[in-house]
Structure formats: C-alpha cells, structure tokens
Amino acid sequence: MKQFMHDLLLVAKKDLRIEIRSRVIINQVVPFAILVLVLFGFALDADQKTLRTFSPGLFWIAVLLSLLLAIQRSVSLETVNDSLTGLKLAGLSPVAIFFGKSIAIFTQIVFLELLLTGGIIIFYGSVIEDPALWVVAGLVTALAVSVTGTLYGALASGLEVRETLLPILLLPVLAPVLIGATKAYSGALGETVSNGWQWTGLLSLFALIAATLGSLAYGVLVEE
C-alpha cells in the first residue's frame, strides 16, 4: 500500500509539475473555457435571466470541452517520447499510474471549475444559493470525468486519430454525468426545484463505478 501511494503521488506530482511548467492550462485551456462561456452568451443572444436559467448546463459543457484538452495533454505526456514504456519498465503499478494521472486531471478540472464559477457569476449574473451542494457536486463531477477521461485517454492513446476519436468515444459516455451535474447545479443555483443532493448521489455512484472499472481496465489498455 505504501509503495502504491508512493507511485500514485509520484505520477500525479509529475503531471501537475509539467502542467504548471508548460502553462498549457493557464494559457490555453482556461482561455478556451472562458471563451466558450462568452460565446454561449452571444449565441443565445439572451438577457441575463435566460443565461442564468441555462448557466448550469453551459457551465458543464464548458468543463467537458476543456476536459478533452486536458486529457489529450495528459496522454501526450506519456506518448511523445514513449515515457510510458519507461513507467512499465520501472515496475510502476498500472493502477497507481491510472489514479496518479486521474488526480492530476482532477486538480486541473477543479481549478477550471473555480474560474468558470467566477465566469458565470460575472457574465451571467448567477447567484449560488447552496454553496455546499455547489462544492460537493463540483468535486464529485470532477472525479467522475477525470477517471473516465483517463481511461478513455488510454483507450485512444495508441490510435493515430486520437484527437478526433477521443471526443466521439468519451462525450456519449459522459452524457449521464452532464445531465446529473446540470441538475445538481440547477438546484445549487436555485434555478429549479430539482433535488441536487440526489443527483450528486448518482454522480458519486458513477464516479465509483468509473474508478473501479478504470483501475481494472487501465493496465490491459496500456499493455496493448
């Protein structure tokens, strides 16, 4: 267990250090996510009341689109110079690699959620009425999309058409997460009377199943 945690934290810290160093998240992913929020505002040509109503869905679509960039980046770290072979030869547990990479993506998504929360408050005039629900649903959803994204990133990593195939494979799988997270955030913003905590419970179940399946399948996928 000690060795597992050592390997997991080593991979997570390495990925995060590279992201901080390269500034891809700050210089590319964050501006992209903010741009998506702003463009939704233009596309809907709506007043703030309409935007507030749709803001939970727009928020999570912006997160999911940005997630694709974060996953592509996470996969490319190991494939550009075939560092994944080195990880295999070093004897790192595939499960530790899976969770290490998931934690790195999770951290980036949480950071992005914080910024986008500021974005919908500023651009759409949203007001968070249940901050606890907002935080818990945000963390659980970030976990669900991170572990699912890491798994699908590994699935697509050996393919030459990875960049175009990954969204096609991943987004349909994350559709239930999008629905659940939107319902939970609608509740947290007081836009609907939906029971946000029940949706958060369902999201937790999705995250648990995805983490379990991911930890079982990741080793097989990276060996192929």
Partner: peptide, 10 residues
Amino acid sequence: GHTSGLYEDL
C-alpha cells in the same frame, strides 16, 4: 529506444 523516454517540460 528510438525516443528519449524523457519528459520535455521537466
């Protein structure tokens, strides 16, 4: 191997 196996940003 043919590639360095190194992380370019580290």
